[in-house]
Design a protein around this nucleic acid. Structure first.
Lengths: 128, 128
DNA sequence: AAAAGCGTACTATATGACTAATACGGTTGT
DNA sequence: ACAACCGTATTAGTCATATAGTACGCTTTT
């Protein structure tokens, strides 16, 4: 069963997107694997204190991406392959990394300064 | 007069935020300086093909941050100090960098891999 | 078979973010 | 003074998000 223990709601970002990102990050990290059971719409909504429809929106989009499979009346499961995992990994990594590299360049930051900044932040705790 | 030549609209991000970010990045990069004239609401809105109120929203927030000054009926100007510039710089840099470092950590990416990814992306052209 | 839980679907509603349209009065340059 | 431009304010419309309530049919468990 997929865990949502470490899930913390951020405001400003749609809840259904946070759910999708949480699951994708878990897939890339390896804490979510092929065949894993995913909590039911009703259970997760109760756990997070949100409406079941919000969970359904997230799950529906994950199903559109073929990352989970649902059969009416039964539980839903994670469906993965090496190709899918690698695709999600580069999707998450490159998109975010590309954005920050572009932003830093626009500000005239040198590659060296960027690298040392990343290096310093990596050691710190706070990552809101 | 502040230039918006290199301004390219991205969808998914509010226009007024893109305007704010463009100006802040210019301030950090040094292409926008203290005393510079800023295009009028009407002129910039015509240039970008958007509504003057959208520009006003961006300018109003920049005014709240004391980065520009406006007098009713007259032109608006950039007002800076070394402290302000340094504050914006760390605000832009740390916020974005912190987010991506946190995301990568959640995905189980090693610092070494993150650094080499940044290094590789830095050389490429595409930075959507 | 019965009960409990499940996925799915539909309608309705409230709210905030974002943008648009318009109008008013002040400032500037001729 | 006058025209042109400016900042500012008000109102309204559109869309995404989130919630609520309800309902139907299927699967699993007892």
């Amino acid at each position: 069963m997929i865990s949502f223990d470490m899930f913390v709601m951020e405001d400003g970002i749609p809840i259904y997107m946070q759910i999708i990102r949480h699951i994708k990050q878990g897939i890339v990290a390896g804490t979510i694997s092929h065949g894993d059971e995913i909590p039911s719409r009703r259970m997760l909504s109760a756990l997070l204190g949100i409406n079941p429809n919000t969970v359904q929106k997230a799950y529906g989009m994950l199903e559109d991406e073929r990352l989970i499979e649902s059969r009416s009346g039964a539980k839903s499961y994670v469906v993965l392959s090496c190709e899918k995992i690698e695709h999600i990994r580069s999707q998450l990594l490159e998109n975010d990394a590309n954005a920050i590299v572009g932003a830093m360049k626009k500000m005239g930051v040198s590659k060296q300064e960027a690298m040392s900044l990343i290096d310093r932040l990596w050691e710190e705790e706070q990552h809101a």
